[in-house]
Simulated scan of single mutants.
Amino acid sequence: MFMPLHSIARLPGGPLLGLWHLTETPADLWPQLAGAAAYTPLLPARADGPRQAQWLAGRVLVQQLLAAAGAPPATLRNDETGRPFLLGPAAPAVSISHSGEWAAALLAPAGVAVGIDVEAVRDKAQRIARKFLNDHELAAIESITLADAAPGSASQELFSLLWSAKETLYKLAGQRGIIFRENLLLDLPAGPWPVPGILPARLQINGAISRHQICYLRPAAGYVLTYCV
């Protein structure tokens, strides 16, 4: 049986961060998913083999996190905004993400806002930067470098990290109608950034501002991950 659970780490305050290195096919993953019959109608209609494997790996990983937390098994659903949640009274808060060979999940006590995102480093984020970064953020990028970035892909990694950070903020907010350039704000310090590290951020929604700390790291070469509790 394939069991590529990469790691489960307990974060300060008790939340659990899980990483799954995806090597299986959907046929390998379905038997690992408890209550698989409940998930069959939830599988996205357009999920091909690789995407179905990612979808399944994320849900198997959440089951592993529930077991590690000593919480009862629960089925993962999505609300009207697409935000995942676990069925059951006082069920833990959860956020999941997947990209390429990696799935990631964050589990926290009920009522806690969480967000997580993993991204394969590629040029797409850099190409669409003006769609999700505001003018202040774009200007700040000129003075930023990432420690130990792979030669030839430093810019792609930085833009992928910033896209991931805004995806994490979006999941943390859990609302429709959010404009990435206006409502999800990154306070980008100048100079070299350590990896792993912490990035200050703000949610500015309906005239209210909340401040957050986004943690970032490299789960593997060619990938970036961000999360916030």
Rank of each mutant, 00 (worst) to 15 (best):
I96H: 04
V62Y: 09
S95R: 03
L65P: 08
R51D: 07
A67V: 13
A36Q: 15
A208D: 12
E157S: 10
T145F: 08
A67K: 13
L161A: 02
A208N: 02
E119F: 02
P189F: 10
I209S: 14
L169K: 04
A208Y: 01
C215K: 07
A53P: 09
L11Y: 11
Q213F: 00
H21N: 03
A68Y: 10
A154G: 11
W163T: 06
N183H: 15
L138V: 08
D187W: 02
A149P: 11
G18S: 13
T23Y: 02
D117F: 06
Y170N: 03
L16Y: 08
R10A: 14
A47C: 11
S210Q: 15
D28L: 08
N183G: 09
A38K: 01
S99V: 00
A129P: 06
D148E: 15
A147N: 01
V195S: 11
E101H: 11
I144R: 02
A110R: 12
L138K: 06
T25W: 06
F159N: 00
Q175C: 13
G222T: 08
G58S: 05
F159G: 10
I198T: 15
G49E: 15
S155I: 04
R211H: 15
R176A: 15
L169Y: 12
S95Q: 03
L172V: 13
R202A: 14
A190E: 08
E137A: 05
D187A: 13
L217P: 00
L158S: 02
S155Q: 15
T145M: 07
K171W: 07
L42Q: 14
L158C: 06
S95K: 01
Q64Y: 10
D48I: 11
K166Y: 10
A105V: 00
P189S: 12
R181L: 05
A93Y: 01
A90V: 11
A190P: 13
A154L: 03
S97M: 02
A105Q: 04
W193V: 06
S155H: 13
L169H: 05
L184Q: 14
R211F: 11
L86M: 08
V121I: 15
P151F: 08
